[in-house]
Design a protein around this nucleic acid. Sequence first.
DNA 1: GTGAAAGCGCTAACAC
DNA 2: GTGTTAGCGCTTTCAC
Lengths: 342, 342
Amino acid sequence: MARTLKDIASELNVSVSTVSRVVNNCDNVHPKTRKRVLGALKKYNYIPNQVARSLKKNYTETIGIIIPDISETFFAQIIKGIDEVLSNRNYSIILMDSNESPEKEEHYLKLMFQNRVDSLVLATVSKEHSALNMYISNNIPVVFIDNIPNLDYDIDCVIINNQKASIMAVNHLIGNGRKDIAIITGNPLETTGYERLEGYKRALRQNNIPVNSNLIKYGNYKEDTGYSCMKELIEHRAENPFNGVYIISEKMTYGAIKAIREHGLTIPEDIALVGFDIHDKSGLITPGITSICQPENDIGKIVAELIIKRLKEKAKSGKVSGIRQRIILDPILEVKVSSQPE
Amino acid sequence: MARTLKDIASELNVSVSTVSRVVNNCDNVHPKTRKRVLGALKKYNYIPNQVARSLKKNYTETIGIIIPDISETFFAQIIKGIDEVLSNRNYSIILMDSNESPEKEEHYLKLMFQNRVDSLVLATVSKEHSALNMYISNNIPVVFIDNIPNLDYDIDCVIINNQKASIMAVNHLIGNGRKDIAIITGNPLETTGYERLEGYKRALRQNNIPVNSNLIKYGNYKEDTGYSCMKELIEHRAENPFNGVYIISEKMTYGAIKAIREHGLTIPEDIALVGFDIHDKSGLITPGITSICQPENDIGKIVAELIIKRLKEKAKSGKVSGIRQRIILDPILEVKVSSQPE
DNA sequence: GTGAAAGCGCTAACAC
DNA sequence: GTGTTAGCGCTTTCAC
């Protein structure tokens, strides 16, 4: 079973093109012939070879996704959103997990290209984006999520307003009576780290609170740095007191909470806390963590729609045209107990 | 940039085969020629077309993974394990999320085959496995994880000892003084649901505790059924009292806890609880949830190694040979507060 | 309405 | 050590 067009054709004494026409539902096939062919297709359980098709048609109906950590709910949900839209159109997803490593990301960028994905979704962790050139110069649409690179050409991206997210978080803490607010942010050379830090500073300034650089810690989004940054903050609490903290990633938030508890401090009494991307639908975490959340499913769907649009343009005009879009969604502040007044 | 072998060849006035030899590091190329070709390859930033290669070589260096829910930590971690091993060997992963739907699974099974994946990893949610025939009859190795199908031929799988998992969970509850133990399990037509339920019954019998079918509830692994099953249990508590519960999936555990809290009951005082696949490294959930855990990373790596082995066999003998392996790993019981004596 | 044939980009057997 | 050639399975143009 599942042989080639040729097999089916010679079985029925028709030409491959006729069989191909039936497979692809083209007209100009006699109803009788069609019926015969359809029968044989069924009988031999024929399934077209996408590889051959791709080579011929010069597209693969495949899109690539490179993300830093599939086990982060944020990315998993985005993938689900993309998958929902794209799988209906018979696209397949090639997924690679860079594990926060720029080297792996670069390797994967090549591997994806080698696979000739029609389009790429990238949550970059790299500062160096020369490997993207092959996509750009070959007219392969790239859509950025989460982090966006600093490039001298326009890009498509679907992100949230990161400054706004921070302003919401910090204003909320201030509104609840906290003035000495620390932040655990990401690498400021990445847009997410940078923008979220900027928003934090802006919010403080707007409230006439001086920015204390000793209350700014830089992690790498992973749990252990959330832990170590918080530990440092707590250990220097005498010189640099704080009673609120804002942490810009899911896993760092977990690590930070762990550190706070280990030091016998309580949330929110000693430290009011706002996290990021905390999904605790069932309310299992006590106290409930106030968090900035991103509309992952929307992001995924919008990414998919944008890709479809770019691919259509390309099919029409031969190249990715249209003005690149920065689609910026609003973050959501989910208020729970961790940030409430004492 | 990134053109074809032909382009490079005509640029240098050599044949495509020479260029191909250089690209593939074959010998029988004059060092001088090699150098020239290498230079051109670099200059034009040549990246081989995997699609053409796949068509010619009759394998794609691609493996497919179909799972029911990428946002479950269990599956995400398995994928990371597989990826770690396979990406080093230049394999790419095509991922599809069936979202617990048998229809989607079947569709994806076809789509994967159409993509001519070299091998398939499947966590099936279906009772009907005829779509697997195309893999079997075309000698494409399939490795099952999590759930295994009831088929009349041998299969490769990497799973945990599900009966043992339940026995550990139930014995632990009994050891902590609970005798009236409920279970929220999965569909008993699936092996995970069935085996975990069997283990539960066995453990009770071994302890001379009668099985009360009113304390057995069937969910679908998702959060809302964990919630509704627990609700039912609690509402019929007068007739069918219980003071311990064992829940066989991550998300159902979350749902169940939510229901327990909403009814004003406490864990472990009113209900001692053992969950499944709960990863709470930072100890955020209070009380800490005692849980059966699976060694996901190991599972992923073993799956990948098994695939490599099968693919090697196939390369050698032309077909997937060797006796199919059921690799059964031990579950781990992580004891926290939720199951401790009052 | 149908078939013949070229060709997508590559590999590999064979010839020289 | 290098080139020529056939062909992987398919789509599509062009004849008829």
